[in-house]
Amino acid sequence: MTPLWQLFVSFAKVGVMTFGGGMAMLPLLEDELVRRRGWITSEELLDIYAIGQCTPGVIAVNTATFVGYRRRGDIGGIVATAGMVFPSLVIILALASVIRAFAGNPWVEKAFSGIRIAVCALILKSVVSMGRKSVIDVLTALLLVISIGLNLFLGISTVWIVLGTVVFAVACHFIKAGRSRGPDGNRSGDGEGTK
């Protein structure tokens, strides 16, 4: 059983090393949760991000709550969330009085313009590894291309893309089920069955 302190520490670690929001956190979450701890699979991490796109709140917190719950139930969710929030609270409260000078410092600004570029490289690595896991046939490849097109070129918001995909997937499921006419829930072919 995962000790609660380990949940707290792991998420505090991710929280302290994340610069710039939910997507910048993906490579760190992948490293800590999938690669080092083995608490979740890459597929589950993507599932959490999908859920996070259409539920309220900060994605980092959504992920922490979700993973904490999967490891240790409700208490786990609360402890992991506390761990994720803890570094921000401490840093902002500690810096609060001098924070204007800190953020306006040209050296800090330069460092952060470099960090943003490094974060791009890290996200690229995550996108490649996530793409390898999530594109498993022609349909999923098409979905990847279409979602990029809708978001990047037509500017359709993520929430609608995700909800539209859910509708599409449910429709596909029932068309397939209608065709095979078998009793539902008996075909657990692709992915996921590893636990």
């Binding site: 796109q53 995550s126 996530m130 999530s134 498993i136 990847l144 995700v162 596909c172």
Partner: peptide
């Protein structure tokens, strides 16, 4: 979720 994963990858 099989359909959502590539979509979220695309969004990222």
């Amino acid at each position: 979720f099989t359909c959502l994963r590539p979509v979220v990858t695309g969004v990222i």
